[in-house]
Design a protein around this nucleic acid. Structure first.
Length: 268
DNA sequence: CGTTATGTTCGATG
DNA sequence: GCATCGAACATAAC
């Protein structure tokens, strides 16, 4: 699930159920999800701690700790953050129990994400070379047009590059390009300034819409606007705008779905 | 058994 | 240096 809109939903879940409540007990179901800390150290650090505020940056979720520093959760491809009353859900890798229910479970089937304790958010983002958050209000179309650069790489690869702009993954990069009417395999060098600025506005609009719809690509997909590509990806889907069968192409090792009729190469 | 999946990283290669 | 590609990680579903 977790791209920016999904992680934003997780952030709200954490804010609602986890903020200002004393952490009574932490259970690590699988130590491999922890980064830079062992289960005992992780549990004892958080036991008796309070989470004071949340922050999402791209696909990363941070929570500031009363004891100092931040809890970081990254969700990989299959992560989730779920409240529960008494029995943790399946594949709960870390369980945070408060003094009373509801408690919170970090769920992750494929274990591709990670959880860590970080001292400073800005340093962490710098070390990992994570670029500005895609919904950062300070970003402008002019900035994006410049940041895209002149390289030969495809626009789809650029949109998924977290060091350029953080938050888009395979699903939403496809959605943005669909809404912008651009083929995913167009090299960034083929995009002129007006196209770049339009693309930036589409990024903001698509992400904001997905967040507003409470959209996690899988569970809430039916709540997205009817002309969104996302619900039609896969299994011989058709374009929601013109009905033409979707085409696919492999870019940066990921499958891209696009409408061969609605999405164009600006070079013709 | 093979293929695929919402992410990231690393080594090899062009 | 830049960009792409495949593999790796780990697990389930078809």
């Amino acid at each position: 699930m977790p791209e920016l809109p999904d992680v934003e939903i997780f952030r709200r879940t954490l804010e609602r159920y986890g903020l200002g409540r004393r952490i009574a007990e932490v259970a690590v179901g699988d130590a491999r999800i922890l980064e830079g800390v062992d289960p005992a150290g992780f549990a004892s650090a958080l036991q008796g701690d309070l989470l004071l505020e949340t922050r999402r940056h791209g696909k990363n979720l941070f929570a500031r700790r009363a004891k100092g520093g931040h809890l970081l959760m990254h969700f990989g491809m299959t992560g989730d953050l779920q409240p529960f009353e008494s029995t943790p859900p399946a594949y709960a890798r870390v369980v945070y129990r408060f003094d009373s229910p509801p408690h919170l479970a970090y769920v992750n089937v494929r274990m591709l994400g990670h959880i860590a304790l970080v001292a400073d958010v800005e340093s962490y983002l710098r070390e990992r070379q994570i670029g500005p958050d895609a919904l950062d209000p300070a970003l402008t179309p002019e900035w994006f047009a410049q940041a895209l650069g002149r390289g030969r790489r495809s626009i789809k690869a650029a949109l998924m590059d977290q060091s350029l702009i953080a938050g888009l993954g395979n699903i939403y990069a496809d959605e943005v390009l669909f809404q912008a009417g651009l083929r995913p395999d167009v090299p960034v060098s083929a995009l002129d300034r007006p196209l770049r600025e339009k693309l930036f506005r589409t990024i903001r609009e698509v992400l904001a819409t997905a967040v507003r719809c409470g959209a996690a690509a899988e569970r809430y997909v039916e709540k997205l606007p009817p002309d969104y590509l996302t619900p039609h990806r896969g299994r011989g889907g058709a374009c929601p705008k013109c009905g033409v069968p979707l085409a696919t192409v492999s870019i940066a090792g990921r499958r891209s779905y696009f409408c061969p009729s609605c999405q164009r190469d600006p070079r013709g």
